[in-house]
């Protein structure tokens, strides 16, 4: 954990400098630099999490579009429909892991994820469960090659996505 490393580094350096009898200003300056570096490392970790989350959602969006393109046809490519619905189910189950604590909006971090995700975790978990549940039913309908069922269940997944975004995501779904 970067925070633990930072704290340990700080205390050990203070003791080293005091033993060596270095000037107080040098110690403070060094400590400030290390804290800054630690904070930067923390921010860059969060940035990585946010970037990964964005990529996951892009994948979800790409797969959802591919599925919609297929089920808009009278004779869809069922191989694609099945693989897309399986992918959506997998991503939906994984979704709660994309929101670790501390990956919300902060200085230097731009994310559409609202703070309510972490302030009301049970509500978020329920919304995520609704999505994974409807995605699983969608995948089942796809495995039966039931086009009417897939269309109906895809709409349910879309509603689960929409209601969650309405509550837990800031900004429009276009930008």
């Amino acid at each position: 954990m970067p925070y633990r490393t930072r704290a340990q580094s700080k205390s050990s350096l203070f003791s080293v400098f005091s033993k060596a009898g270095m000037g107080r200003r040098v110690v403070l300056l060094t400590a400030a630099l290390l804290i800054g570096a630690g904070a930067h490392a923390g921010t860059s970790n969060v940035l990585q999490v946010v970037h990964a989350r964005r990529e996951h959602f892009k994948r979800l969006g790409r797969t959802a579009k591919s599925l919609r393109d297929q089920i808009g046809r009278s004779r869809p490519n069922w191989n694609l429909v099945v693989s897309d619905t399986n992918e959506i189910e997998r991503l939906a189950q994984d979704l709660p892991n994309w929101f670790p604590a501390g990956s919300g909006q902060a200085r230097g971090i731009k994310t559409k994820a609202r703070a309510i995700i972490w302030s009301k975790p049970q509500e978020f978990a329920r919304a995520a469960h609704r999505l994974s549940n409807s995605a699983a039913i969608l995948a089942q309908a796809a495995s039966r090659h039931d086009l009417a069922g897939v269309r109906l269940r895809a709409r349910a997944v879309g509603q689960a996505c929409g209601s969650c975004h309405h509550r837990f995501r800031s900004h429009s779904n276009w930008w």
Binding site: K65, R68, G158, C161, N173, W174, W175
Partner: peptide, 29 residues
């Protein structure tokens, strides 16, 4: 145009990839 979730799109979005649809959405903006 395609939205970021791949759920809402224009009627011709089915002829383009997701990324291209997103580019059109940004051009639209």
């Amino acid at each position: 145009s395609v939205d970021v979730d791949g759920v809402v799109s224009g009627p011709w979005a089915k002829w383009v990839r997701f990324e291209t649809g997103r580019r059109f959405a940004h051009l639209h903006d």
